[in-house]
Each structure stands twice: as C-alpha cells, then as structure tokens.
C-alpha cells in the first residue's frame, strides 16, 4: 500500500530543511504508522535529494509523524538550482512510500 492511500500528508520548507508530515486517515492505523514509517525509510526514499539527516517526531494526541530532513533543498529556496526549489513537490515522493498496514 502507498502512503498516499492511507494518510493525510504535507510538506514544508525552512531554509535548507524540509519537513514531511503524515497523519493516518484512520486512527486505527496509528500503531502501524509508527512501526512502518521510520526515519530510515524516509531517508532511503529521498536518496540523494536529502544530503543531511532525517529525524522523526510524533504528534502524540493528533496521531501524526513529522520528518525533519536537513540538507534537503540544495541550499534552500533562494540558492537552489532545482526546478522546484521549495521542495513543494516532496509530498508526492513522500506519498509514494510503501507502507504495510
């Protein structure tokens, strides 16, 4: 199953840091999310796009995960040579992650 099928998700940028957040559409999937959606998995998915680290944080009450990726935006929106310097499209790649529910 793909993450986009079972999650509400989004992404954002601050300088050279991107963050990706995912909340299970069905809260019954929360435990599976925590098990399946690891920082290592996100880091592997983004490959060479993320040059720094990926750290995972939890929204305990609203049941969501937030991944903070450093060195993720080719120097940041103002410096990057990429087509999408904000990484606004990162949500599309994030949503393509396989998740076993």
């Amino acid at each position: 199953m793909k993450l986009w099928e079972v999650a509400d998700f989004s992404c954002g940028d601050k300088a050279d840091v991107a963050n990706l957040s995912a909340f299970p559409k069905d809260e019954a999937h929360w435990e599976a999310f925590k098990r399946e959606l690891t920082a290592d998995k996100v880091k592997a998915k983004f490959g060479s796009l993320v040059k720094g680290t990926v750290t995972r944080y939890e929204y305990t009450a609203s049941k969501g995960l937030n991944f903070v990726c450093t060195g993720a935006l080719d120097g940041g929106v103002s410096i990057s040579l990429r087509v999408d310097p904000h990484g606004k499209s990162y949500g599309d790649l994030f949503g393509d992650i396989d998740i076993d529910i």
Binding site: F9, G12, K14, N19, Y57, Y59, G64, N66
Partner: peptide, 10 residues
C-alpha cells in the same frame, strides 16, 4: 492536523 504540522520541526 496538516496545518498544525506545517513547517514545524520538533
């Protein structure tokens, strides 16, 4: 929920 998580890190 998505607005909450928007561009917040920890």
């Amino acid at each position: 929920k998505l607005s909450l998580a928007h561009e917040i890190h920890d």
